[in-house]
Design a protein around this nucleic acid. Structure first.
Lengths: 349, 349
DNA sequence: CTGTTAGCGCCTTCAG
DNA sequence: CTGAAGGCGCTAACAG
């Protein structure tokens, strides 16, 4: 009875009473704003410790009109790259002292509900790793002064920033590798209804190939998967072989497709690097494994996450800065499916 | 100027004014508690719509002393099983109208900080998929009346519930399969510093094997990986072969180890099912792929998530119900690495 | 440096 | 069925 509200958690007021000060001082100590005499601070900390006091973030956020929450929109976590991206984001979000609010969305409608709910929690920022942020929704965020940043996509929405792996650099690295290895007929494998980044990667790759004079339109073979993921790649390979087509080098929009395509080709008696070269995107752990040892473009997830957070904070301070689009450098990881040959023809055939 | 606070988001009071009612009624409509005349309800909804009103969850939570947040503790999302588990949890959490607060932890210390932060957000529940919830921390949760449930682990903490894949059932299914296939020398592969569920799976498997008379102590070969994940399994295989050991059937604590071990054996010239049988745990997408086609125990992630949420809600209503430990049935998915043979010897050797 | 005073936006009795 | 009043726990001026 004496101990304020039995069982309930202690409030700043309880602490203030015990320490014999005002709640304002308690607040000052725990949000370390404004100055507090060392002596009173210690009294407060001790009292707080005694009562097991902890700031109520709900009340804090209500008052500040901003919680320390950051909303993260994800999709298809079963893709290893996406889950490693989430991992990087979580780690960076926590390091900066925020808390991640994670929602998985399946369609545009869910994205809309989600962003709306994020604003209801007065999040400090929204990270979109999937789907196109609907323009009007974003407007709402801007109105509420909530920064939005998209990863691996890019649209012309004012006040929304983007950070994106450097697809052009990726294309160049791959093109050079293929050329160095003497590949002549090059293919580009992508899912029929790919994401923005998938499509963009293909477009840029084609441009680069033409620029380098490595191919004209007829040379770049578009291989289209009817399905996404590993199975999609595998079936694409089967259809490819049925049609009696042939390639020297295949570049794939993502790691899953690449592994699937490689396995599909193997089922048809073709293997890399003996019969063709194949290079993937994402560098997921699986691609490093013995059964694949895939040469692949590596995306720097941690750097991406860092940039995202710093964008979020920048726009949090000044909502009206100009849109920023950052490209994160990528690396080519050479493994078995397109090894570092001297510039000679690889196929005896 | 007339329009209340320009730019700011509308509050219940704004809606009340516009609709010509009291804020209490607005509140009633949006938390659909208490009765409101159809007519006034409609007036309110219209006004709300006009102003783009949305409930402020911070204020709501502050008042209700409980947010609609659910804290989820994860680790090592790079393991495909763990990310699929998270996926299942997210989906169920959203379906039930909650919002997930996700934190990745690396050690016990972080777990503690995390749970503490969860309580500061007055979450409606905490789901621990990794690490042992420290007893005193949990006590704090109980005190705050926050339900805690652990997945694939089990400890004797009062008022904390657990839901766990049925490891005994898994062991039986695998034992029977090995016996049916005539495997004689059976191995159990696990990481040196495995998780609770890994260790438990091994213990139970041994028990079952003895029960079935399929082996006594000397028969069950403990294969220990010095490292976790794919590489751990692979290196274990290499050491295993160096030592000139031999097995008929290997059961693995998880999918990553299984794939690694299989590949390691292949590098040494042994393959499944020709030279030995191997069965994994988790049934991650990768295990289904052409290069592995691993026979494996399947854990029902969605069912697990469902049970978790229902436990959370049950204890949310009555914090003092007795501890519940649910076992989720598993299935044996027969694939290539231990096919459905008639009961005969498989090895010519 | 510290205390006082107003809210933040919502929910919940309690009257009417 | 509806309105008025008080409070959830914290912060942000403003005085002292």
């Amino acid at each position: 009875m004496t101990n304020s509200r039995r069982g309930r958690s202690a409030s700043a007021e309880d602490v203030a009473k015990l320490a014999g000060v005002s709640r304002a001082s308690v607040s000052r100590v725990f949000s370390d704003q404004g100055n507090v005499a060392r002596e009173t601070r210690e009294k407060i900390l001790q009292a707080a410790n005694e009562l097991g006091y902890q700031v109520n973030f709900l009340a804090q956020g209500l008052n500040r009109k901003r919680s320390q929450l950051i909303g993260v929109v994800v999709a298809r976590l079963s893709d290893p790259f996406r889950s490693s991206l989430l991992e990087g984001l979580l780690s960076e979000i926590q390091r900066k002292g925020y808390q991640a609010l994670v929602t998985e969305v399946r369609d545009a409608n869910e994205l809309e509900m989600t962003i709306r709910r994020f604003t209801q929690f007065r999040v400090s920022g929204v990270v979109v790793t999937s789907g196109q942020p609907p323009a009007d929704l974003v407007k709402e965020c801007v109105q509420h002064n909530i920064p939005v940043v998209g990863i691996n996509r890019h649209m012309d929405i004012p006040y929304v920033d983007f950070v994106c792996s450097d697809n052009k650099m990726a294309a160049s690295l791959v093109a050079e590798q293929f050329i160095r290895c003497g590949c002549k007929s090059i293919g580009w494998l992508n899912y029929k209804e790919s994401t923005w980044s998938g499509i963009n990667r293909g477009k840029v790759f084609y441009q680069v190939m033409v620029e380098k004079g490595a191919c004209d339109e007829s040379d770049l073979l578009q291989i289209t998967a009817e399905m996404d993921g590993y199975e999609g790649g595998r079936q694409a390979a089967h259809r490819f072989c049925e049609q009696g087509k042939i390639v020297d080098g295949v570049f794939c929009a993502n790691a899953q497709l690449a592994c699937g395509f490689l396995d599909g080709m193997r089922e048809n008696g073709f293997d890399a690097p003996a019969d063709f070269h194949i290079i993937g995107f994402d560098n997921t752990p699986q691609t490093a494994q013995y059964s694949y040892r895939l040469t692949t473009i590596h995306q720097d997830v941690l750097e991406t996450a860092k940039r995202v957070l710093s964008r979020l904070e920048a726009r949090g301070q000044d909502p009206h800065i100009v849109q920023s689009i950052e490209e994160i450098p990528v690396k080519l990881v050479i493994r078995n499916t397109s090894p570092n040959f001297e510039p000679t023809m690889i196929r005896a055939k």
